[in-house]
Amino acid sequence: MIKSLDPRITRAEIELNNSIAPLEENDQWETYEVFHQKKRGDQHMHVGIVHAANPDMALLFAKEQYGRRGQSVNIWVVKTREVYTTDYEDSDIFDTVPEKMFREAGGYKVMEKINKYKKEHKI
């Protein structure tokens, strides 16, 4: 029996050479991805995971693991296995995006045209 410096351990009456069966598969349940919103108006941000046995507990756990400091107003959890993702291997599908200036506000330079016209016509 362990006589520990920690009175909690001494009270638990633990054998020093105890042995236990290994943890089995799913012993730690499954994982939920956690999304945290700091304040109203902000996006929810992915902050990590919790292991939980059901959604209610996932929310209880997420609140403490990811919301015990700083500001929070809202948390979402979703089972990891229910999240669909693109592959990093396919990140080339985004490759030509920066060239597509016709989608960007910065692709339209009206002031240049106006100024040129004003200059030419002395307005």
């Binding site: 598969e25 799913n26 349940w29 499954e30 994982t31 991805e33 995971i49 990891t80 296995r81 999240v83």
Partner: peptide
């Protein structure tokens, strides 16, 4: 319960 590897 069905564990899969977490995403990130």
């Amino acid at each position: 319960t069905k564990y899969i590897v977490p995403l990130a």
